[in-house]
Measured scan of single mutants.
Amino acid sequence: MMAYMNPGPHYSVNALALSGPSVDLMHQAVPYPSAPRKQRRERTTFTRSQLEELEALFAKTQYPDVYAREEVALKINLPESRVQVWFKNRRAKCRQQRQQQKQQQQPPGGQAKARPAKRKAGTSPRPSTDVCPDPLGISDSYSPPLPGPSGSPTTAVATVSIWSPASESPLPEAQRAGLVASGPSLTSAPYAMTYAPASAFCSSPSAYGSPSSYFSGLDPYLSPMVPQLGGPALSPLSGPSVGPSLAQSPTSLSGQSYGAYSPVDSLEFKDPTGTWKFTYNPMDPLDYKDQSAWKFQIL
């Protein structure tokens, strides 16, 4: 009977010793046993002879290597770790002494450095960015050149030099007046198309007034536009458009034309069986010896 009264063996659950049927240790109110408190290391007290050895090595170098620390530790009968900690504390003490010396050398008012006064946003004049500046400075420094007289040679050079070769001289006033084509001369031969040399188009003023001019072949195509416009036809070669000034309004060009419109200028042929003959000019830059190549039959 006494065997049943004795408590059973101890069981360990999660490293906790349980005594038989008792489960009081598993209750929430019972805390787990805490780790033992780490003991504080005792402070090391250095003797005068030990301090002399350490100070002598510190005077040589503030960062001794492990071999120098072990050698000193053997002399003063201390572990190497204590020597390492002593050098660490000695360097910190040396830095603190240097900072105190710097503070003593500075004057009393030198510690508080005078800061520059901050400028207020409204006091300083700042350039306004509302208006974009002129990058080319046209509004201040540029002045347009004065327009020359209508009959000045410089204007003629600016007008005619675009179309004339570089080897030719500017046309005088008398020749510029001949550039304007007359109405009857352009409409006299509506079906004849003559190819003149390129030099005649640039230099010869008579080429624009003769039936064999460069633009005589364009007349049949330009004249039928007159009834559609409801007024006189516009002429690209009329009046002052080739003269001194090219800047004319469309209203000033509306009254200039080749001449009176005639039914002869239409595109319809009077004789459907007729042929169109292209007159060959020996001055043509295209060297075609066979003139029969310039004739064709309209079917």
Rank of each mutant, 00 (worst) to 15 (best):
D130G: 05
P197D: 04
E52F: 06
F296Y: 01
G239Y: 12
W294K: 00
F296W: 03
N14M: 13
A92M: 12
G151K: 09
R43G: 15
T187D: 02
P144Q: 00
F269W: 04
Q62N: 03
L146C: 02
Q106M: 08
P135W: 05
P133V: 06
P205S: 06
G255L: 12
D65P: 08
A15T: 06
P263M: 11
P165K: 05
E80P: 06
L267Y: 07
F269D: 00
K102G: 01
A260Y: 10
A158K: 06
L218I: 03
L246F: 09
P64N: 15
Y208F: 08
P240Y: 13
F46S: 14
D287T: 09
A260F: 15
Q103H: 08
T129S: 06
Q39K: 11
K75W: 15
Y208I: 07
Y11S: 00
K60Q: 05
S235R: 11
T44P: 14
S124D: 04
S143E: 04
P236D: 01
G110R: 08
P127I: 06
S12C: 14
S188E: 06
L16A: 00
A189S: 05
V264A: 02
V157L: 04
A59G: 03
Q96M: 03
V264S: 02
D284I: 14
S143L: 01
R48W: 11
P282M: 10
A29F: 11
Q291I: 13
Q111H: 02
Q103W: 03
P282C: 11
L136H: 07
S141R: 14
L16D: 00
K38T: 09
Y280F: 15
R119C: 01
R69P: 15
P9C: 08
Q97H: 09
Q228M: 13
N77F: 05
G20T: 12
Q103A: 07
V85K: 12
S169G: 09
L54R: 13
P190D: 04
S169I: 13
D134F: 06
G209M: 12
I138G: 08
I138E: 05
P33A: 03
E173P: 12
S213Y: 11
G122M: 08
R43L: 15
G209S: 06
M283F: 14
E71L: 10
P272F: 12
P224Y: 12
Y208M: 06
A207P: 06
Y288F: 09
S143K: 06
K289E: 05
Y191R: 01
P165W: 12
F278S: 00
R37N: 08
P135R: 09
R69S: 15
T61F: 10
R48M: 06
A166Y: 09
K93M: 14
R82V: 08
S182K: 10
L186T: 00
Q101V: 09
G151A: 04
Y208D: 01
A158M: 15
Y32L: 07
V72D: 14
L222V: 02
M225W: 11
A293R: 12
V264Q: 01
P272N: 04
S204M: 12
G243V: 10
E55W: 09
A29N: 06
G209N: 04
V85H: 14
L78R: 04
R91V: 13
L54A: 13
A59C: 02
S124I: 09
L74Q: 03
N281T: 15
G239R: 15
